[in-house]
Amino acid sequence: MLDEISLELFEHLALLAALQLGPDETVYLHQQLNNQLRVIQALADIPLADETPITSHGVPFTAQTSPELRADIWEPCADAADILAQAPRLRDGYIVAPGIPHTTLE
């Protein structure tokens, strides 16, 4: 039995993804997601031993090849103004955001 992404689940995903989709986009994206999912489900048929490890990076990073981490020291940011200048709305050096609604977690 192949999984399929229902329209209800699709709309939930869109909400979680912070996407507000139009009707045409919804039809296209929903169809393409399910087309891709049919391909992805080929993974289920691949024989895999339980002890098969995951690979997060193809190339192993060993102690010898991993770069040394930089010292954890405070340094002034030379271009803070340039970075802040990218924000659409600024006031007194702060990014302006609309209201952030309070949510009570269950």
């Binding site: 699709f10 995903l13 869109a14 993804a17 912070a18 996407l19 507000q20 989709l21 139009g22 986009e25 296209y28 994206l29 393409q32 997601l33 891709q36 999912l37 955001a97 609309p98 209201g99 952030i100 609604p101």
Partner: peptide
């Protein structure tokens, strides 16, 4: 509401391919 800003900005800013990848 900041969530409305997120949704409106991401909907207008992203094309169809990024949206497809985010959802999957």
């Amino acid at each position: 509401d900041v969530h409305k800003l997120y949704r409106k900005s991401r909907d207008a800013g992203f094309g169809i391919q990024p949206k497809l990848r985010i959802l999957m």
